[in-house]
Amino acid sequence: MRIALLDDGGVDALADALRAAGCDVAVVRAPPVAAAEALLSRRGFTGPLSHVPVLVARLRAGFDVAHAFTAVDAAAAQAWRRLGGGRVVFTCRETLDRSGVADRRLRLATLSRAVERSDAVAAASEPVRASLLRWLAVDAPVVDPGDAAAQLRLYAAAG
């Protein structure tokens, strides 16, 4: 199983743990374009968004699972799945509240798609789990981001 971890700045420890468990793991990075982000932000969009096309292109290198940690990256992984890619797993690391679930353009759309259309959804902590339940009505299991065995069970559940 080839696993793509979509880098949000905090996946290296998980990548190491999965490699230690014998998995074929790649950290997929696609940096946002600062000028584009500034323009999108001024027009009220959630962000970052400008990295999405490159992210989708890089996922086409042939993975079985794409593991996203932000709602936008999960939406990108779902686009990859529609193009013939594999399973999409979303781990939410952000504790949601009402002020941040629909505060920008595409925010609600990406959040709702991330939790409703991913093949498996997890919460990174108990407060995140509670916030997912309160604001998105999703009862996601808490999966420790550093626990490779638990992550592998999550990938299997997505299949």
């Binding site: 001024r42 027009r43 009220g44 629909a102 505060d103 920008r104 353009r105």
Partner: peptide
Amino acid sequence: GLEHHLLAA
């Protein structure tokens, strides 16, 4: 007021 950024759309 929590969604005022969307007025930029």
